[in-house]
């Protein structure tokens, strides 16, 4: 992915040299106007609306126990999604990039399933599996008295599903391009498998890994559709931030809704900044090799 970005970068540079000044101006203005209309104004609006009825209501809206619970559940979900998908993503990327096995292409295609499928279907799949009344696993769940749907566990599960491909997708092309030769060199120098991973593989993929983690965190924080299906909307128990925003909005508490939205927006902006740093580092690393 980073490769594409640097390639595009080079192409724009070439065009810049060839196009006349007026054309440049028109293109840049159109891009800027569109950017402000579609991106900046709504972003500002979120914060303006959030503070419309004063800072007092803003603080109250986000420190309300139900809001705090939503923040907590969202952070826990992000945590699970990031940790589990990092382990999974590294494993999958390693297997795909460094080994040959039958059905590899099919496997990689299926990896994209969570991207291709509508989030609501993702939620439905989990209901059909884990519902205690009509789910496929209902007998098992009832036998152990487990509640997965309409509980934090269900929210974490669907979030894992929808964020599964991000890290693996980010790592596979990079690891394929790098091959196994540096790892082989480390092994021939007597390094153990673990040290080889830690000292050779990880430093070479760390920025791409961070990039994947950011994408995973952003999606985990913002996922609405799939989470909405399995949550059951139990206030103070199974509401994440996006669900909490919806509830507030439906209850005509606009300022509170925007206050909570602003939190999600801040998470998004932090993600963007880190993502850009990762991007920049990947580009630098590529230039160096």
């Amino acid at each position: 992915m980073a490769g594409n970005i640097s390639a595009q970068y080079m192409i724009t540079n070439d065009i810049k040299r060839q196009e006349p000044k007026t054309m440049q101006l028109i293109l840049i203005s159109v891009a800027l106007i569109f950017f402000v209309l579609i991106l900046i104004i709504p972003l500002v609006a979120v914060f303006v609306k959030a503070f419309e009825q004063g800072a007092g209501l803003y603080v109250f809206s986000i420190s309300d126990p139900i809001a705090l619970q939503a923040i907590k559940l969202t952070l826990i979900t992000i945590g699970f999604a990031v940790v589990i998908n990092t382990v999974f993503g590294l494993t999958v990327a390693w297997a795909v990039a460094k080994f040959k096995f039958k059905g590899k292409n099919l496997f990689v295609t299926f990896l994209d399933l969570p991207f291709a499928i509508s989030p609501i279907i993702a939620g439905m799949i989990f209901i059909l599996l884990f519902s205690t009344t009509h789910g496929l696993l209902a007998p098992l769940l009832n036998a152990f008295d487990l509640q997965v749907m309409f509980a934090p566990a269900g929210i974490i599960l669907v979030t894992l599903f929808v964020t599964m491909p991000f890290i693996a997708r980010e790592l596979i092309p990079l690891m394929e391009a790098q091959g196994t030769v540096e790892e082989e060199a480390a092994l021939s120098l007597g390094a153990s498998g673990w040290k080889t991973f830690l000292l050779i593989t990880l430093p070479n993929i760390k920025w791409a890994l961070l990039y994947g983690v950011i994408l995973t965190a952003a999606r985990a924080a913002g996922e609405f559709g799939a989470v909405s299906v399995v949550s059951g909307h139990i206030r103070g128990l199974t509401n994440t931030l996006p669900l909490h925003v919806e509830i507030l909005y439906n209850e005509y508490q606009f300022s509170a809704a925007f206050a909570v939205s602003s939190l999600l927006t801040i998470i998004a902006i932090i993600n963007l900044v880190v993502k850009n740093i990762a991007d920049w580092r990947i580009k630098k690393q590529e230039n160096r090799s």
């Binding site: 030769v181 082989e184 060199a185 480390a186 021939s188 007597g190 390094a191 050779i200 160096r288």
Partner: peptide
């Protein structure tokens, strides 16, 4: 490989970048 104690020089050097 680790236990064989051989020095291996790779075709495209395989230096740690």
């Amino acid at each position: 490989t680790q236990d064989r104690k051989v020095g291996f020089v790779f075709q495209h050097y395989a230096l740690f970048r």
